[in-house]
């Protein structure tokens, strides 16, 4: 499978990265080179093999349902959450107006 400029444009748009025409054109051969190379994986016989689900065989630990048990992962820290916001007003993050 290889990508053309329109495909790269669609992918860039899905990834929300604005790209000018020249950049899209430059990306086409680069991405195709990488894709062509990774497609050698198709050679591998994977009959009966399950995709890896956990790097080190393990299952999920569960957390107790306690509010703010650890301040590092709890709420009640609005100032910290908003501290780096490009726009914050009245305790909210501000973004360009959205029309739903």
């Amino acid at each position: 499978m290889s990508v053309d400029k329109a495909t790269v444009a669609r992918i860039a748009s899905l990834a929300r990265i604005h790209m000018e025409d020249a950049e899209l054109e430059r990306m086409v051969p680069e991405l195709n080179g990488i894709l062509e190379w990774v497609e050698q994986l198709g050679e591998v016989d994977v009959t009966g093999i399950e995709p890896m689900a956990a790097v080190i065989p393990n299952s999920l630990r569960l957390r107790d349902d306690v509010v703010d048990a650890d301040p590092r992962t709890g709420g009640g820290r609005r100032a910290d959450v908003l501290a780096n916001a490009p726009v914050a007003e009245h305790g909210f993050f501000g973004v360009p107006k959205v029309i739903e």
Binding site: R72, T73, F93
Partner: peptide, 10 residues
């Protein structure tokens, strides 16, 4: 209150 129940994770 807005954003008062928000962790760094959220």
């Amino acid at each position: 209150e807005p954003n008062s129940q928000v962790s760094l994770v959220d």
